[in-house]
Every structure is written in structure tokens, then in C-alpha cells.
Write a protein that binds this DNA or RNA. Structure first.
Lengths: 236, 236
DNA sequence: GAGGCCAGTCAACACGCCGTCGAGTGCGCT
DNA sequence: AGCGCACTCGACGGCGTGTTGACTGGCCTC
């Protein structure tokens, strides 16, 4: 019943209400607004490293970017929109980092799964302030929740397909529906990383977290921590 | 740097600043204040079923309990303290529901682990509004975060001990440090339940969630979904 | 080169919620 | 009769938010 209503992907674009490309056409190069916008983004990521998202006011963001509070609204419709833009950059980076490792599982399953988890770990760890802030406001902000659900769905589908592929080639046994398994494993990673980066409550040491997650993934998918690289020849 | 400072377990007790038992001594039975207090709690849990915690004002809580806003502060120091009291009741119920199943694992490991997970599921599902609200504000409220970390630590320790016990009796193979494994599995459950109850993003169907979690637990701990009830006789 | 449009800017306002203060009321005990 | 305490609330000050309306200066058109 919170009702977000309209709000769509253009939440980050306050200016140029026309559907055309922003700030392009008349002025070929960068307008002054681009500088301000990136300044706000930079200020936000810097401030997030120092205090919680809720303790950062719009005035802080504006002052940090060298503008007044009303001017902030010229660039972003709300504080949350800034975080959304930051999250967008991180998830894109994560997607790029993941690459096509899942297509090359048969080469060496254990090594490839580890590569996947390690790359996500590196990406999130490199922007932990943003990731933590998003996890914190996901509860209160429908837009962040929606965007996160979208990227998670994408990763779940990729893992689901990979599990099914491994089952088809005989490397992984049948069992849980691949989608359910993919959801459970992705969920585990998310929560474990959060605890590790946040450092509150029971957490796995940052040094060990990739191998711990990998172990659970492998046993859940293959029932062993040493899955075969080539199809097993079934007797009969 | 948010600095909670003093804040301790007495966050829920605003009245009777003396260290003695609250409202006891002069009046033997229940004072009118007890009614108000439970009315606030009941209003909070009811309202949480309708809208998010952040969209509930202290005035809403007060009006719902038939008192004015300032009077609310006589009973609770803040809105968060109400949620904390609610969470306290739920975790106590969960602890009670868990009982001693972990001490009876050897009888029938699969059945006992399933019982444990199913009981937690039932408890959380019965108070999903409270659980969801806590997950949402854990990011912004240090007290909720601390309390949740405490109860999680307790469960992690219990599971860790159970895993080590299963390894000692030869039912479970060695592998990851038991504590890391316990953290990963508990984290998974928390996040998966959250998604299932919240219904946003990729989630396991509520009907299946216990069996999905169970499967991952068993494979991670035993490398099989059918762990032995009695010690295996090792060759040699 | 006069006119206008438009990106960009901010002082000032209205709103909502929060936490507190100080002034009450009525009951029970002395 | 009178003190004390559980309990109550009107009213205030503060903070952060989002909006309004007016202002500047560059560039483009006629």
C-alpha cells in the first residue's frame, strides 16, 4: 500500500523532461550540469564511507557538490535517486565482471564457480559503502527494492540455467528444482557478504568468505566439493 | 560513527527509572499502564500488517492505543523501542519452539534438522509483519541490529556445536570450519525467509521453502540428503 | 542587436514529524 | 488535609523535506 505509482527508470533524470537525450543537440560537449551531477554522486559515495545513508541529509549532498539544497532537486528528485544511480553503476560493473564464466563451467567446474563468486566478491567489496547503504534502505525504498530484485532475478536465472546445464551433461545429480536452488544460493551469498562487509553480528572473515560460499555451492549442486570436468560415463 | 552510546536492554522501559521491578510494590495487580503498554504493542503489530514501519508515526501508535503522542513517550522512549519489544517476543518464541531438537540429531538426522527448520519457519511465518519490519529497520536502527546479532549468534553457536557433534560421531565428514558453515546456513535461511515472506524479488514458494532449505543444509553438512542415523563403521 | 528561450541557481516558505517541557488530574497512602 | 506518584496532554522549538517564484547569463533566432 506504499504505492510508488509512476516512478520508473527515469527516476534519476530530473532535468530535460523531454524524451530526447539529455543535454545533447545544442551543446556538443559536457554541460556544467554534468559536472554537478557527478559531483553529487561522488559526494554521496564519499559520505557513505563515513556515515549511514539515513544520517546524510540532502543539504550535505548539495554542500558537498558546491550547490544549494533547492539546486540539488534540479539534478535528482530525491536522496534515494542518488543511491539508485550509484547502485546502477555497481550492478553493471558486477555483470561485466561475471562475464561468461558460467558458459565455461565444463572446463573446470570448481575453478569456474570460484571465479564467479570471487569476482562478485571483488566488485561488491570495492563498493561496500554503496552495497551496504542499498541493503539498509531496501526495506524503506521501493525503487531500490525493485532494482535489486531485477538484478537478482537476472543472476538467479543465469545460475539456474548453469545448474540445469551441469545436470544435463551428467556432472550434477538431479534434486531440488534448479530455480529454487539458485535462489537459495544467491540469497545466501547476499546475506553473508552483507554481514562480512558490515561487520556486525556473526560473520565469516573476509579472507575466507569466497571459499566458504564456494563449498556450500558445490555441495548443494554436485554433492561433492570436487565436481568432474568431463561427463561421467554411466555404467550400463 | 553513528554512536548509540548508552542504550542497553532497558530501552523498552521508559517508566520507573528506579532499578526495581516496574510498577510493583504499592499496587499488587496490573496497573492501568500495563493495558496501555500492551495496547501500543498490539496496535503496532496490527499496523505493521497494513503498512511499512517507516510509514507508521508515533501519533498513529498513540491514537491506536487511545492516548496522545506525548503520553506514548511515557511508555516507550521511541518508535523503535516498540519494535524491539515485539522482536523480543518473537525470538523468545522461536527459541522455545526450537527446544532441544539439536540434541537428538542422532535419532534421525534428516527428520530432526527438518523439524528445526520447520519450527523456525512456523514461528517467523506467524509474525511475519514483525520479522519483515525488523529486517527493514535493521539497517537504520542500532538497537534492533544488536539484538538480532545476539540471537543470531546464539543460533549459530547451537548449529556449530551440532555440526561438530555429527562429525565426531562419524555421520558428517570434515570440511569447512563448523562455525563458518553455521553462519552461512543461518544467513541463507534468514534471507530466503525474508524474500518468501516479503514476496518481492526472486523467492521460493512458501510451501516449498522448508524442504529447499533443508536440502542445502543436508548436502552442506553431510554431502548427502540421507544422512545415517547411527555411526558408520569405518573400514580398517 | 533585440528578443527570447533555457540551463542553472537560490532565498524563502509550508509541511510533517519528532522529542520535550510544564502544567495538569485523580487515586492511595500517611 | 495533604503529600506523592502514576498518568495525561497542549503547546513549543527544531530539523529535514519538497516546492515556489524570482533571478542570472549564455546562446540562438530573426
Amino acid at each position: 500500500m506504499v504505492s510508488t505509482g509512476v516512478a520508473s527508470a527515469d527516476m534519476t533524470a530530473a532535468r530535460t523532461p523531454t524524451g530526447t537525450a539529455p543535454t545533447r543537440g545544442r551543446r556538443p560537449g559536457r554541460s556544467i550540469g554534468d559536472d554537478r551531477e557527478t559531483a553529487i554522486l561522488a559526494t554521496a559515495e564519499r559520505l557513505l564511507g563515513q556515515r549511514a545513508f539515513g544520517d546524510i541529509s540532502i543539504d550535505d549532498l548539495a554542500r558537498g557538490a558546491g550547490i544549494s539544497r533547492p539546486t540539488f532537486y534540479f539534478y535528482f528528485p530525491s536522496k534515494d535517486a542518488v543511491l539508485l544511480a550509484l547502485l546502477d553503476r555497481v550492478t553493471e560493473e558486477a555483470n561485466a565482471a561475471a562475464g561468461d564464466v558460467l558458459d565455461r563451467l565444463a572446463e573446470d567446474p570448481r575453478a569456474r564457480w570460484r571465479e564467479l563468486i570471487a569476482r562478485f566478491h571483488a566488485t561488491f567489496g570495492g563498493h561496500r559503502a554503496v552495497v551496504l547503504a542499498c541493503a539498509q534502505v531496501r526495506g524503506t525504498n521501493a525503487e531500490v527494492r525493485r532494482l535489486w530484485a531485477e538484478v537478482l532475478e537476472r543472476w538467479v536465472r543465469a545460475v539456474e540455467a548453469a545448474i540445469e546445464s551441469e545436470r544435463r551433461r551428467g556432472a550434477a545429480p538431479d534434486g531440488l528444482p534448479a530455480r529454487d536452488l539458485a535462489i537459495a544460493l544467491n540469497s545466501m551469498n547476499e546475506r553473508v557478504w552483507y554481514a562480512t562487509f558490515a561487520g556486525d553480528g556473526p560473520a565469516v572473515a573476509e579472507r575466507d568468505v569466497v571459499d566458504v560460499l564456494l563449498d556450500v555451492w558445490l555441495t548443494a549442486i554436485y554433492r561433492t566439493t570436487a565436481p568432474p570436468a568431463r561427463p561421467v560415463s554411466r555404467p550400463g
